[in-house]
């Protein structure tokens, strides 16, 4: 009952013209009011989460479903907001890397607010310059390449897309490894240490612009396009040989 009351109070407290519709902008830049406008309908009051559709509807009758945010900390909030994963229009869709709805100040305010909801981890500071690219490749192959492909071109798993990582910043990669967004596993420090993470990020920086020895990357997605090109070139060469032999035979 108290929750309902809080909802009503929050709803009334918002600017009436553009209340809570994502993309319309909220004049107040305070983290709490931004949260109320964009996040509360799914993540609940004070980040308590909405775990069943039978729970009270959110602001402006938006029915949402979302996990609690008490312990995601600044790390989780920063990842989901800077990548544009959140706010998500339809909670049943996979979040995609898009331009964030918010500007930097708004993100900072929201991250600060979400961090204040519980005792989550802080935003990490990776040091890819300390990493070892070769070790990073080995770690990436072992833990990440199964989904993201060995030069991070992305791929598929059943029911989801593993995104390419070329647009991800070092901080976002460091966050994603610890968060495990959407269907990705969460890798604790016992599995990938901070040092190994630095190496992985160093490798990924290299993988953004790999040295294509053949001169033609073909999307870097492996043997299918390469085989296609080989066969087309080989087939043309064979036909050419046949033509030459035929001509010489005639003379």
């Amino acid at each position: 009952m108290t929750r309902l009351l809080v909802l009503v109070v929050l709803a009334l407290g918002l600017p009436t013209s553009a209340a809570g519709q994502p993309g319309l902008g909220v004049k107040s830049k305070s983290g709490k009011s931004l949260y109320s406008a964009y996040c509360l309908s799914c993540h609940g009051v004070d980040g308590s989460g909405v775990t069943s559709s039978s729970e009270p509807r959110g602001v402006l009758d938006v029915r949402g479903l979302g996990p609690p945010l008490n312990d995601v900390g600044a790390l989780g909030a920063d990842f989901y907001l800077t990548t544009g994963y959140m706010p998500l229009e339809n909670p049943h869709e996979q979040p995609r890397h898009t331009k964030s709805t918010f500007d930097k100040q708004e993100i900072a305010a929201l991250v600060k607010y979400v961090a204040s909801l519980g005792h989550g981890p802080a935003i990490p500071t990776p040091h890819p310059e300390r990493g070892d690219v070769a070790a990073g490749l080995a770690q990436f192959t072992e833990h990440c390449a199964g989904c993201h492909q060995v030069v991070a071109e992305g791929g598929y798993v059943t029911n989801a897309v593993a995104p390419p990582l070329h647009n991800a910043t070092p901080v976002q990669i460091a966050e994603a490894v610890r968060v495990g967004p959407f269907l990705m596993p969460r890798f604790p420090k016992s599995q990938i240490s901070d040092g190994q993470l630095d190496s992985i990020i160093a490798y990924l920086q290299l993988a953004k612009h790999p040295d294509d020895r053949g001169g033609w990357s073909l999307g870097r997605i492996g043997p299918v396009p390469e085989g296609l090109v080989t066969w087309l070139i080989a087939a043309a060469a064979l036909v050419g040989c046949c033509l030459v032999i035929g001509k010489r035979f005639q003379q």
Binding site: C147, V157, N159, G180, P181, F182, L183, P185, R186
Partner: peptide, 8 residues
């Protein structure tokens, strides 16, 4: 090589 883990 793939483990799919729902966040929510």
């Amino acid at each position: 090589a793939i483990f799919r883990k729902p966040t929510f």
